[in-house]
Write a protein that binds this DNA or RNA. Structure first.
Lengths: 116, 116
DNA sequence: CATTTGGTTAGCCATGAAGCTAACTATTCA
DNA sequence: TGAATAGTTAGCTTCATGGCTAACCAAATG
């Protein structure tokens, strides 16, 4: 029942996971290093990483016994695009209302004040 | 345990709620009209509206027995800003890596190829 | 080869989210 | 004023989320 956008927004709806993302903007890191600042058992922390990976926000690869996690910021695209579109439609609506208001004024007042 | 940003992202992490937002970009509407396209009992739908309102994405006022809901797109700000910041830090990092790479090249190769 | 280290798996618990029905309140309208 | 309309409240179920411990696997190291 949860689509990709649900998963993406949900991944960002948690402070721990956003902290991990912020850390990763400075470069990839192994699980242990990522987990260090978080007062949480490792298996619990792992779930957060898995959730970020499911959302496509992060990828990971095994190097020896370490798992190196890296950011994939392209993943934010759909979220940003969606928000932008909403704002643009909303602003478009304001423009249209303004246009309507002007037309009504023109129709009801055949001698607008800016015309001498 | 959930901060304001959690609540905002969580509000957007649901198709029904995103649909409502999209509808509201075209103008405010009473609950019943908003609920109509959604195959869901009214009390269930109400919870979604309440969640959007908690997140600040929407406001509502009572007019007679109707409750009119309107969008407040400024609420998206924090989400957009956060995502943008992550991308900017990430890109900054790439720039820095590039700079480092250039410096290393210059140090190891005193006669770069573009110099005759 | 035994031990440490880094991660993983399995399984449990408490809480919260999303849905429902039934019953209620408050406007509006005939 | 009685009936219809628009929301609301209460209370229930089911499933997901976020946390835990214990036990395990596999790579690295003494």
């Amino acid at each position: 029942m949860a689509n990709q956008m649900d998963i993406l927004f949900l991944a960002l709806a948690d402070q721990t996971r956003r902290d991990v993302v912020e850390r990763l903007t400075h470069g990839e890191a192994p699980i242990k290093e990522l987990a260090a600042p978080h007062d949480m058992a490792l298996p619990s922390f792992l779930k957060h990483i898995d959730r970020l990976e499911d959302a496509g926000v992060v990828t990971s690869r095994k190097v020896g016994r370490q798992r190196i996690v890296a950011l994939t910021p392209e993943a934010f695209g759909p979220a940003e695009t969606w928000i932008d579109r909403q704002k643009r439609v909303w602003e478009g609506r304001l423009d249209r209302l303004e246009a309507v208001a002007k037309r009504i004024e023109a129709e009801t007042n055949p001698f607008p004040k800016d015309e001498t």
